[in-house]
Design a protein around this nucleic acid. Sequence first.
DNA 1: ACTATACAAGTTAGGCACAAACTGTCTAGT
DNA 2: ACTAGACAGTTTGTGCCTAACTTGTATAGT
Lengths: 187, 187
Amino acid sequence: MTADPTSATTGDQDRRAAVLESALTTFARFGYRKTSMEEIARAADISRPGLYFLFASKESLFRAAVTQALEQDIAAIEQILAAPGRPLSRRIVEAFDRWAGRYVGPLTRDVAVLIEDNPTLLGAVVETTPRRFEELVTAAIAADSPPESATRITQTLISTSIGIKHQTDTRAAYLERLEIAVELLLL
Amino acid sequence: MTADPTSATTGDQDRRAAVLESALTTFARFGYRKTSMEEIARAADISRPGLYFLFASKESLFRAAVTQALEQDIAAIEQILAAPGRPLSRRIVEAFDRWAGRYVGPLTRDVAVLIEDNPTLLGAVVETTPRRFEELVTAAIAADSPPESATRITQTLISTSIGIKHQTDTRAAYLERLEIAVELLLL
DNA sequence: ACTATACAAGTTAGGCACAAACTGTCTAGT
DNA sequence: ACTAGACAGTTTGTGCCTAACTTGTATAGT
């Protein structure tokens, strides 16, 4: 008998996840076109044919990398917003930080641009995930506010977050401005 | 004796202003580089050498066009915010509409990008005018709110406006979203 | 106070050949 | 379940040339 197939599958998925994570940062640094499969393989410490063993093509790899990052972000945001002890404004700020603040820094600040610039390469995830984020934030706010104004507060906060992302260069600056906006809008 | 020099000078300035206005829309359509002096002259219904009689170079023409537009915007915004009868939120919305909503439409939506893409061509106007806009809005809000929170409300509104500008395609959509934000932030 | 025409100097665009790099696949090896 | 190496077919970058265009100016005319 060989090794337990379940753990073997888990090992596969771990490897895939690790490759996708490093691949996304590589894509973020150089953009989709200028990132070669060789560079991705080197960053993941595997051979280039081995990379093709894990992913059928560069395009599907890119899709998987973005999808994984978005799903992990959504999962983390669900956790953050569900934490019962912390005040609402604190949870909202942390949710936005995970959603947008992560992608402000000089290194990975182009992930958002990367996604926006290649809409055809990515499936419906790019459309549905922001909507999911909006739903989560709206639900969290609706616990403390009338539900009708919760959607308006959420939409305004999302716009504000986008604006701040364009105005600031560091994650700290983004957070500072966002905290003010959340404080003003959640009263 | 020849014609009155004062009226002659005024005529010059009117012609200059009209040329600058059409030149700005032409720049907005094709960008700075791809707009030729011939096109600008044609749009202004004068000859190309005549254009050089009014402006020494393409660069100074561009600078003058942007400067004039910004100064006219600021002047109009001063008028809007100073109108005593209208409610504050209405005046704020109209001020932002003049400041940013004007540059959302499909035709002239790239004026902001145009300005941001050519920082070296433009002098300090591009830095000082947004600051002036912020000061005007802050002063208007400070009439109804504690001055300390007025600056924070203004900064947040500016960020929100930038975000909405990136999310919407039409001036009407921009206005709709902005009105919600102003209503939420001015309570 | 302009227009029309023309011109020099410089920049840009298009075409084309050729070298380099990239993707996706295969084979052999461990 | 991989790695190393190699390979075909295609895409991409580069150097170079020429034609077209652009800027700024000058001249003559009204």
